[in-house]
């Protein structure tokens, strides 16, 4: 690790001021950032420790739930209201990482975690995300974990997490505090596609800090997180499907789906939710949903398999959620 100054933020305003300084990074759980600092992918001059801010609470919020930015993944996954009303979120968190990591990883940090692209984490290799303008090693290289949706010529990395995919399906909101005041951003709009600026991964401005994620009124129904990976535990998703789906009679009354492992952000395509809502479930309908999801999908060799895998994972999820099959 390169030398750095360590500063502890005692108040939120203080944290924003400190974090706005040049070459400064904020640290919460540290499970991703310290790893990247050891690899010298990140070499901040100053580290601002957020852990003493009062942001770890999980509390009732209108008809929903407000999860503090410093609430650990474990605290969220074992919370009685999360388990009862947002089981999708509990399932997604528990499908990721290990208990040791979930005990440290935080809500805010998890949203800001970086890609696990081999070229990003290896400073010998070109990477437009780590070093803008240096090129993308994955385009012509090892790309088994990489994106098939929303890619650009500059970057085909994926957002690696599970928690945010569930939050995208649940239509959560990210609360952000900054020097210019507070703002809220729909989680579905928090992460960005790579375009020609893959080093900009989300909408946070310098000095802005995530303070919480709020979940809206529970939608009920079946909540499924289907994660397809190379090992059955402690592996990133090749493809994951988060689904909150409620039937009324023989029709789908509510459908909200999001996908992990496919893009630079948790992938949410409102056309899929619209297609399913109000319809009677059938294999033909599920096929149409997969057609919409994958109409612009592009493989890069090693990850070509993600395209048929995503179709099958979506179909299997919808079969589980509706009880309808071929």
């Amino acid at each position: 690790m390169r030398p750095f100054d360590y500063k502890r933020a005692e108040r939120l305003e203080h944290a924003g001021q400190l974090a706005a300084a040049e070459d400064t990074l904020a640290i919460a759980g540290g499970t991703n950032l310290i790893d990247l600092m050891k690899l010298q992918v990140e070499t901040p001059a100053t580290l601002v420790d957020l852990n003493h801010l009062p942001l770890a609470g999980i509390e009732e919020h209108e008809d929903g739930l407000r999860i503090g930015a410093l609430a650990t993944n474990t605290a969220t996954a074992v919370h009685p209201r999360v388990r009862a009303d947002y089981p999708l979120l509990a399932r997604a968190i528990l499908a990721g990482a290990t208990q040791q990591l979930r005990n440290k990883a935080t809500t805010g940090g998890n949203l800001c975690q970086r890609t696990r692209c081999w070229y990003f984490t290896n400073t010998d290799q070109p990477c437009n995300k780590r070093e803008p303008g240096s090129g993308c090693g994955a385009l012509m290289g090892r790309a088994d974990l990489h994106a098939v949706l929303g890619t650009s010529e500059a970057c085909i990395a994926t957002y690696p997490g599970d928690m945010a995919v569930a939050m995208a399906a649940l239509d959560a909101t990210v609360e952000i505090a900054g020097e210019k005041g507070s703002r809220s951003v729909p989680l579905r709009e928090f992460h960005l596609l790579p375009g020609d600026t893959p080093h900009i991964e989300n909408v946070l401005e310098p000095g802005e800090i995530i303070t919480a994620v709020t979940l809206p009124t529970p939608v009920g129904g079946k909540q499924i997180y289907r994660k397809v990976r190379e090992r059955s535990s402690y592996a990133f998703a090749l493809v994951s499907v988060a689904a909150a789906l409620r039937m009324e009679g023989e029709s789908i009354a509510h459908a909200a789906l999001a996908f992990g492992g496919l893009a630079h952000k948790p992938w949410h395509d409102p056309r899929i939710d619209d297609l399913l809502t109000g319809e009677k479930p059938s294999m033909a309908l599920f096929d149409k949903a997969a057609d919409l999801l994958l109409e612009d999908a592009q493989g890069y060799g090693e990850n070509d398999a993600k395209i048929p895998l995503a179709r099958r994972a979506l179909t299997a999820t919808l079969i589980d959620a509706t009880g309808v099959s071929a």
């Binding site: 360590y6 640290i27 540290g30 499970t31 310290i34 790893d35 420790d49 852990n51 474990t74 208990q99 040791q100 990591l101 005990n103 440290k104």
Partner: peptide, 19 residues
């Protein structure tokens, strides 16, 4: 490197002592 910190298990390699 697993240790218990305030009763919870964590990877002690991924956390700074000053924290």
């Amino acid at each position: 490197c697993t240790m218990l910190v305030n009763g919870q298990r964590i990877n002690s390699c991924l956390t700074l002592a000053v924290m």
